[in-house]
């Protein structure tokens, strides 16, 4: 049996990711829970997240999710962070003014268009781009990793976000995506893999990434 814990801290839709995991095999058992002992007893952990970072961080701290994730990583247990789950791992976020995050990965979370001063995001031809970055965009793999197995480089995944992570350690970057500028769309560190896109909503490529996660021993 392959036991997967999806961390439930009261934010967003956990149904999609658990259903997607369950579709991948009869031996996959998914539990959505906020119970630390149950999460840490699982074979692997998914740290999801949608919504605004301030509310997410408040619940993450209230339920002690920060300790759970730290303990799991210390034990080299595979952890997959998705979207705001990924952003929560950084040191801080520009969203909601300024929000301190978990600091498990070095770097910050920035808003698309924030660098121009007027909030407008432009493409290389000077054309205005919509924010949120919503839809299917290409993911350029920047390092070999077990989670990329069977996924073609530059495959499209589904994104929906207005903020992106800016790691200060370039060696953590497992993938990049272009939207106005190049940003890190996946980060990797030990038994942690974090993605800005939604694998559970990215059809074949996304399901393949989840399949790879289920088979992963936590070593890069």
């Amino acid at each position: 049996m392959n036991n997967v814990a999806v961390i439930d801290y009261g934010m967003g839709n956990l149904h999609s990711v658990s259903k997607a995991m369950e579709s991948l095999g009869d031996d996959v058992r998914v539990e959505i829970t906020s119970d630390a002992s149950r999460i840490l007893a699982a074979d692997r952990i998914i740290f999801p997240g949608v919504g605004a970072i301030r509310d997410c961080m408040a619940e993450i701290r209230r339920l002690g999710v920060d300790d759970i994730v730290s303990q799991a990583l210390a034990a080299s247990k595979p952890v997959l962070a998705i979207c705001v789950g990924m952003q929560a791992l950084m040191e801080s976020s520009e969203e909601n003014g300024h929000v301190e995050c978990l600091g498990l990965l070095p770097g910050t979370v920035k808003r698309f268009g924030g660098e121009t001063g007027n909030g407008v995001l432009l493409d290389v031809d000077g054309k205005r781009l919509k924010v949120p970055h919503m839809g299917w965009n290409q993911v350029q793999q920047r390092q070999a990793h077990p989670l990329w197995q069977g996924i073609e480089d530059n495959s499209r995944f589904y994104f929906v976000h207005s903020y992106f992570v800016a790691p200060t350690d370039a060696s953590l970057c497992a993938a990049t995506t272009d939207y106005g500028h190049t940003f890190a769309s996946a980060l990797s560190k030990g038994s942690l893999f974090a993605v800005q896109f939604h694998p559970e909503k990215s059809q074949h490529s996304g399901l393949q990434l989840l399949r790879n996660f289920l088979a992963w021993d936590g070593r890069a």
């Binding site: 839709n13 999609s16 369950e22 579709s23 909503k201 990215s202 059809q203 996304g206």
Partner: peptide, 28 residues
């Protein structure tokens, strides 16, 4: 449970509870 692309649900969404129900059911 079977279709792994984004799903939008509309029609008769009037309360925060309606939204919660649809998101819990799997709408994105």
């Amino acid at each position: 449970g079977q279709v792994f692309i984004p799903l939008t649900v509309g029609g008769g969404i009037r309360t925060l509870e309606d939204i919660r129900t649809m998101l819990n059911a799997g709408a994105d």
